[in-house]
C-alpha cells in the first residue's frame, strides 16, 4: 500500500537580497516525500539544496509556495508555533553536530523533551538513555560533547534528533564532517531508523552514501532536475539491504553528463 505524503513542497520559490541585488535560490521547487521514505538530496555548492532542506525543517521560509508536513502548512506558522512543531515532528541533524557545549551528551538528548514537555520529567532520562543505547553511546552519556570524536558527537546529535520521536528526520550533510568509516556507521544508523519507520531526508555530497539511498533528488540552479530523481528502491518502507560488509555495489549513473555513483541494493 502506498504511504501518504509526509512532506509536500509545493512550487516553492526563495529569493535572497544580496549585495548585487535579489538572488533566486529556489525556483518553484515541488517535492513529495512519503512517510517511511529515505531521500537523498544532491547538488553542487550553491545549487539550493541546503535552502530546500531549510524550507522543509522550517528553519527558513519560502518567498512563495507552500510547505506541508504531515498535513500541516508550516510556512504560515509563527516562529514559536513552528519551533514547537519542529521540536515534536522534525528531528534535525547538522553537519557540525551543533551540540550545546556546556551540556553533557545525556543532557543534550533530554533538552528537546524538556522544551516540548512531551515526556514526564522522570521519564526523560530513561528515554535519553534508551536513545543513546540505540546509537551506541551509553558509555559516553555523561561526557561533554567536546571530549567526543566527530562520529560520537554526530551519534549524540542523532539521539537528540530522536528525543521527541519525530516522524521526520532531516540531515544537512550529516556525514560531511566525518571520515568515511565513521560516516558509514552513522549512515547505517540512518538506514536503521528508516527501517524502523522514520522518514529521512538528507543532503549529502558523498557519492558512495548517495548510491545507497533509495531515492536521490538532484538539485541544480534552484530547480529539481525532472526525471533525474534516482529511485533505488520502491519499497521505501521496507528494510534497506546492504552488502555483507555494510557496503553496496556501486553503479555508475550519469547525471548531467557527469559520472555519479549511486548504490545498487540487493533489492534491485
Amino acid at each position: 500500500m502506498t504511504q501518504p505524503d509526509l512532506v509536500h513542497v509545493d512550487t516553492v520559490r526563495k529569493n535572497y537580497a544580496g549585495p548585487a541585488g535579489e538572488v533566486t535560490v529556489l525556483k518553484g521547487v515541488s517535492l513529495h516525500v512519503r512517510a517511511g521514505e529515505f531521500v537523498g538530496v544532491r547538488g553542487p555548492s550553491g545549487s539550493g539544496k541546503s535552502t530546500l532542506i531549510n524550507m522543509i525543517t522550517g528553519i527558513d521560509r519560502p518567498t512563495s509556495g507552500a510547505i506541508t508536513i504531515a498535513g500541516t502548512r508550516i510556512d504560515q506558522m509563527s516562529e514559536n508555533t513552528l519551533a514547537r512543531y519542529r521540536g515534536l515532528k522534525i528531528g534535525v541533524i547538522f553537519q557540525f553536530f551543533q551540540l550545546l557545549p556546556t551540556l553533557t551528551v545525556l543532557e543534550n538528548t533530554m533538552l528537546p523533551m524538556e522544551f516540548c514537555r512531551v515526556w514526564k520529567p522522570r521519564e526523560r532520562g530513561e528515554r535519553a538513555y534508551m536513545l543513546l543505547e540505540q546509537v551506541g553511546l551509553t558509555d559516553q552519556a555523561h561526557k561533554l560533547p567536546n571530549t567526543l570524536s566527530g562520529g560520537q558527537q554526530q551519534r549524540a546529535a542523532i539521539a537528540r534528533a530522536l528525543a521527541n520521536d519525530p516522524p521526520l528526520l532531516v540531515g544537512d550533510e550529516p556525514t560531511g564532517n566525518l571520515d568515511s568509516r565513521t560516516a558509514d556507521r552513522v549512515f547505517q544508523l540512518f538506514a536503521d531508523l528508516v527501517a524502523q519507520g522514520k522518514t529521512f531526508i538528507m543532503v549529502t555530497h558523498d557519492n558512495e552514501l548517495a548510491a545507497r539511498i533509495p531515492r536521490v533528488i538532484q538539485v541544480q540552479d534552484g530547480v529539481l532536475l525532472e526525471g533525474q530523481e534516482h529511485h533505488v528502491s520502491e519499497r521505501a518502507t521496507g528494510p534497506l539491504h546492504l552488502g555483507p560488509n555494510g557496503h553496496s555495489a556501486v553503479t555508475d549513473l550519469h547525471l548531467n553528463g557527469r559520472a555519479e555513483h549511486v548504490p545498487q541494493t540487493a533489492a534491485q
Binding site: 519551533a83 519542529r86 551543533q98 550545546l100 522544551f115 537528540r160
Partner: peptide
C-alpha cells in the same frame, strides 16, 4: 547565537 538557533531547532520557544 548559534546555540539559540539550535535550541529553537529542537523545539525551544522564544519565551523559553
Amino acid at each position: 547565537v548559534p546555540q539559540i538557533g539550535i535550541m529553537k531547532t529542537i523545539g525551544g520557544l522564544r519565551g523559553q
